[in-house]
Amino acid sequence: MNYPESYRYTKEHEWVSLDGDTATIGITHHAQEELGDIVYVDLPKPGAVLETGKSLGSVESVKAVSDIYAPLAGEVVEANELLATAPEKLNEDPHGDAWLVKVKVADAAEFNNLLSAADYQTYVGAES
C-alpha cells in the first residue's frame, strides 16, 4: 500500500495533509485493515473545535467502535459527507476519497511534529 510521502501520520493511525492552513485528516490503510468492514463513521459538524489528542469522532465496524483522535488542533470546516452514505469507501480508498474532515489548523507547526511516511511504516511494522 502506498503511504503518500507528503502526508504526516500518527501512532493512532491517522494521516494529515496540509494545504496552506487547511489540514485534511483521515485514517490510514493499516487502520482500516485492522478495523475490518467499516459500517458507520461518526464525524463532527463544521464549526466544531478540535483539541490535539482528543476524540474527534469514531469509526465502527460490525462489532467494534474506535475513536479517532485529532492529530492537531483547529476548527472543522468540512466533514466528508460521502461517508454518511458510503462508509465502505473508508475500506476502499482511505488515503484519498474517504478523508474524514478538513480543519483550519490553529498551529501549523503541529503538522511537522507528526510522523513521516517512512517512520509510520516502520512503526506499523514494529507494531505488527
Partner: peptide, 12 residues
C-alpha cells in the same frame, strides 16, 4: 447496529 450497545461500547 450492535455498536450502540453495552457489550461493545461499554461506558459509552
Amino acid at each position: 447496529l450492535a455498536t450502540r450497545e453495552q457489550h461493545i461500547r461499554r461506558e459509552k
